[in-house]
């Protein structure tokens, strides 16, 4: 594998993300020098984990189709495991949970087989019905609705929503034009994550009006709007260059990612608040768990995917 053999969008992504991370590391080093009294260890940890996450993600995309599918399947596995470890579960349902895990390889198999219809309905229809059936066979009615409801919700978030990212990466333009799904996936992930960071920075600098104080006291309207504006600007600047999206489509995509990312974030916050948890896990030092990091993606991925499909060019 040589540099020039990598797909073009991936090369730009490596260079772009690499320079942002170098800048972030330098900034943290500078802050530590300028303000020795303040503790920046949390920020340092965060940036370090960003380096690792970016390397793993971009590294996975450098492999073929199977590599991309395996990466997303493993991400879904980690997210589902984290979800099932943080929610209350019933002892009797152990085997049902095992079946839910088995949905992961099957869902990614449909993608590998290019079976679009099955990819769309497998989890929302067949797993939905199957898990209810498997649970009722245990004949434990106490807490039944909560058990089947939370399990299916977890599958939708961690497997169904994320699997759209894998399909997105494998999209091919129908007219045989240059530029496929890889650029779209990179755009989606980059804009979603950058949207998170810019909403945070706008909120910290200008934030006054709480957006949803009962769910997430630190989220402000200023942060949300500033973040969306940044994301839309970046999308209009970058997406027409690296993907097949036109300027007006890129504007729409930026809005979807900006607002969708915010909603995904606060939805997972509400789940954690309901369970009296601060973080969903400890897998990503400085960030929390996997679900803390993919929370915004679980909204933006299916929304962006169907927006792109609607354009009917892939």
């Amino acid at each position: 594998m040589t540099w020039s053999s990598l797909p073009e969008p991936l090369r730009y992504a490596i260079l772009g993300v690499g320079s942002i991370l170098v800048a972030a590391s330098l900034l943290v080093a500078l802050l530590t020098l300028l303000k020795p009294a303040k503790d920046f260890s949390e920020l340092k940890l965060r940036v370090r984990t960003w380096w690792i996450m970016s390397a793993v993600f971009l590294g996975a995309l450098a492999f073929n189709r199977t590599g991309i599918l395996c990466f997303f399947a493993f991400l879904s596995f980690l997210a589902l495991k984290e979800f099932l470890s943080m929610i209350p579960t019933r002892r009797a349902d152990r085997r049902v949970l095992f079946w839910a895990y088995l949905a992961i390889p099957v869902q990614y198999l449909w993608i590998g087989m290019d079976w679009y219809g099955m990819f769309l309905v497998f989890i929302p229809v067949y797993m939905f019905l199957f898990l209810a059936m498997r649970t009722v066979l245990i004949q434990e009615t106490e807490g039944f609705l909560k058990a089947v409801g939370t399990l299916h919700w977890g599958l939708m978030v961690s497997v169904y929503a994320l699997s759209h990212g894998a399909w997105l990466a494998l999209l091919k333009p129908t007219n045989g034009a240059h530029g496929g799904g890889l650029g779209l996936l990179l755009m989606l992930v980059f804009l979603t994550q950058f949207n998170d960071v810019s909403q945070y920075i706008w909120g910290r600098t200008l934030g006054r009006t709480p957006a949803l104080p009962k769910v997430s006291p630190k989220k402000t309207m200023e942060g949300l709007l500033g973040g969306v504006a940044t994301t839309v600007t970046l999308s209009v600047l970058l997406a027409p260059r690296f993907t097949l999206l036109t300027k007006s489509e890129s504007l729409m995509a930026g809005l979807i990612i900006g607002f969708g990312g915010f909603i995904g974030d606060v939805v997972i916050s509400a789940v954690k608040r309901d369970l009296h948890l601060k973080d969903s896990g400890e897998l990503l030092p400085g960030h929390g768990g996997i679900l803390d990091r993919v929370d915004s993606l679980f909204f933006t991925t299916p929304l962006f995917f169907h927006f792109v499909k609607y354009l009917d060019r892939f």
Partner: peptide, 18 residues
């Protein structure tokens, strides 16, 4: 904590949990 959920006594099937 959690290993009794993943593989309790008398069960042969391991179910992943953190």
């Amino acid at each position: 904590h959690g290993l009794g959920k993943a593989l309790p006594r008398g069960e042969a099937l391991l179910v992943p949990f953190f």
